[in-house]
Each structure stands twice: as structure tokens, then as C-alpha cells.
């Protein structure tokens, strides 16, 4: 169990994390989601005592990380940045970490086996590929058989096989009753791995809910309509709370109206429909909508000027990045 309470981190003027509170429960994978620069890595560094919070605290099973007698046996962390001396072999790297706790050599061999690095354990870690580096980082995290695991963007840059390996691993670890917190800036990745979500934007909590609720409730649904008389239908459907996006000459994307109402209106006007499909917003769209709302909510002028480089305020930067993401997700 990880309890984050009122966590705030300032780097000089820059507010990286702001009054963040959430709890990570054991037995499930909790996704820690937020766009780039939203403060995920900073929060994770504070959880394991690398960075000192400006305010607030983190408790791991009721204790501060610094006060834990055997930290590696309590929390295993895979940080975003590599944390291995390039000149040392994987085996000696893990051995040196194990020795700080009196963990026997046997366990070093076991975790090397577990992550599939047995063949290269005696090679310099500096020569490892990204995927091998991640596996070594995970071996270090598992070294003390910890009940809590924290992984910062573990699948970044991995090939599909590596991604699948990590996904399975995390789910297995959670199934054994461990607390697993894994960060990502991709909603689609979280949907496949996590059961619960903690979403942040600009260092603030946006949502703390199950993945299922998130997907169901985050965004209204869209109806995909195809008709030879699309332009005519569009005029009939339009009203104050309905938005319609034309997609090609005969396609409409309608939100704000259920599909049966659209069908009825078309029938009444004698317009033939060749397609009428209710479509749930994609996960990425739901995520965008949620984080974008938060941006608007918190940052008055920022939403009005989302692309202005301006004074470099956090809101503007975050907003602009979200917009870019949105374009990518829809195309």
C-alpha cells in the first residue's frame, strides 16, 4: 500500500507536483497516467526518497521510505532513467545491491534467471540494449522480493515482445497480492495492463478511478452516420447541444444525439442511411478529453491560447502538448 498525501514538489520556480494525494492498493495493477511533463517521474522519485518533497509525504505500508529497515524488500523501483554503472556486469551490479541488505548470492542468480538475462549476466551493462536494460532494472526491483513495485514507463521503447513480457509480469506480480504502480503517458497501454487509474495533469490529480469507469464515463459517445444525402441530414440534426463533424462527402460524426433519434429523424425526412453506428470514444480520446478539461479548468487564459509559447507557463505548455497528441490520436 502506498499513501501519497498532499505531495508537492517545486524545482525553483517550477511546480512539478502540486498537492497530490492518492492511495495505491495491493492486489491490482494501478496505472499512473499523465501526459509528458505532468509529474509522474517526480512523484515516483519522491516515493523512493530520491527527491525530497517540498510539502506532503509518502507512506509505504505506513512507514516513510527512509525509515524502512530493508528498503529493497519493501519497495522495488524501476526508474525512468537508467540506474546502472555502464562498466559493471549485470551480475556484479545486482550483487552489490543485494549485499547492502545481506541478501544472498543465490537470490541474485534467481532474479537474473527470472528476467531472462542468464546468458549475458557477466557482460558489461553498458553494452545492453534498451530491452536488456529494462530487464536488468526489473531484476534489481525484484531483488528483495518486495511487496510494492513502482515502475516508471517500463515499456517505453520496447519491442512488442518486451512489452508483452512486462505486461504479463506486472499482472502476475499483482495477482500474488503485491502493490503495483506503473506509469505511462499512453492510455491504450494502461487499459491493457491496469485495473485502476490515477490520472494527473500538470502535477495535479485529475482522476482516481477504475479503468472501466474511466472508459465508460470520461467522454460522450459518437455516432457514425453514412448517407448519400449527408449534407441535408446534417442541417436537420443540428441543434444547440449537438456537434457534428463532416468526414468526407457522405459521412457525419454526430455527438449529442443517440442513434435511434438520428434514425427517426432521417426516416421522417425520407433520407436513406447506409450506415448508423454508435461508437465509443477511443481510450486515447477519453484521456485527452479528461486531461484537456483539467487544463482548461485550472488554467484560465491557457485554454484560450493553447498554442502560444508565451511566458512558458506550465498550463500553456501542457495544453499545447495535449493538442498535438489529440491530432495524432484522431488521424
Amino acid at each position: 500500500m502506498i499513501e501519497v498525501q498532499g505531495l508537492t514538489k517545486r524545482y525553483g520556480e517550477k511546480l512539478a507536483v502540486s498537492e497530490l494525494s492518492f492511495t495505491v492498493r495491493p492486489g491490482i495493477v494501478t496505472g499512473f497516467l499523465g501526459p509528458n511533463g505532468s509529474g509522474k517521474s517526480t512523484t515516483m522519485r519522491m516515493i523512493v526518497g530520491l527527491d525530497q518533497p517540498s510539502e506532503g509525504s509518502v507512506l509505504i505500508n505506513g512507514q516513510r521510505y527512509r525509515d524502512v529497515r530493508a528498503p529493497l524488500c519493501e519497495v522495488g523501483a524501476l526508474l525512468e532513467a537508467r540506474s546502472v554503472h555502464t562498466g559493471r556486469s549485470a551480475y556484479n551490479h545486482l550483487l552489490a545491491l543485494a549485499q547492502t541488505h545481506g541478501i544472498p548470492r543465490r537470490r541474485v542468480g534467481d532474479v537474473i534467471e527470472l528476467v531472462g538475462l542468464a546468458g549475458v549476466a557477466r557482460k558489461r551493462a553498458g553494452g545492453f540494449s534498451l530491452g536488456m536494460g529494462q530487464r536488468l532494472g526489473i531484476a534489481a526491483a525484484l531483488l528483495g522480493d518486495p511487496g510494492t513495485l513502482i515502475l516508471d514507463e517500463p515499456v517505453n521503447g520496447l519491442d512488442p515482445e518486451g512489452i508483452r513480457w512486462i505486461r504479463t509480469l506486472l499482472q502476475d506480480l499483482a495477482a500474488q497480492g503485491r502493490t503495483v504502480l506503473v506509469s505511462s503517458h499512453l492510455m491504450s497501454e494502461m487499459a491493457l495492463t491496469a485495473e485502476h487509474l490515477v490520472v494527473i495533469g500538470q502535477g495535479r490529480l485529475i482522476a482516481d478511478m477504475s479503468v472501466a469507469d474511466f472508459v465508460a464515463g470520461a467522454s460522450e459517445n459518437v455516432v457514425h452516420v453514412r448517407s448519400p444525402r449527408a449534407a441535408q441530414l446534417r442541417d436537420l440534426l443540428l441543434s444547440a447541444d449537438v456537434t457534428i463533424r463532416a468526414d468526407g462527402a457522405d459521412v457525419l460524426e454526430v455527438s449529442g444525439l443517440p442513434s435511434d433519434r438520428i434514425g427517426a429523424i432521417a426516416a421522417a425526412a425520407g433520407i436513406a442511411l447506409s450506415e448508423l453506428t454508435p461508437r465509443q470514444a477511443s481510450l486515447e480520446e477519453a484521456f485527452m478529453a479528461l486531461t484537456h478539461d483539467a487544463v482548461e479548468y485550472h488554467g484560465g487564459s491557457a485554454s484560450a491560447l493553447p498554442h502560444q509559447p508565451g511566458d512558458g507557463s506550465a498550463q500553456t505548455a501542457g495544453g499545447a502538448r495535449l493538442e498535438t497528441h489529440g491530432a495524432g490520436a484522431r488521424s
Binding site: 524488500c73 541488505h101 541478501i103 522480493d145 502476475d172 506480480l173
Partner: peptide, 25 residues
């Protein structure tokens, strides 16, 4: 690859062996 065994049940390892950071270690 699946993880069927990541070690003894959680906590046992620590409690039995008295693992923990000391200056000597």
C-alpha cells in the same frame, strides 16, 4: 515467459533472514 515464482511468499524472505541495511553490509 511468465512469472510463476518470484521467490518465497512476500515478507517471508525478509523476516527469516534479518535482511536490512547495516554499515557493514
Amino acid at each position: 515467459t511468465t512469472v510463476t515464482d518470484v521467490g518465497p511468499a512476500r515478507g517471508e524472505l525478509t523476516a527469516q533472514a534479518g535482511y536490512g541495511v547495516t554499515q557493514r553490509r
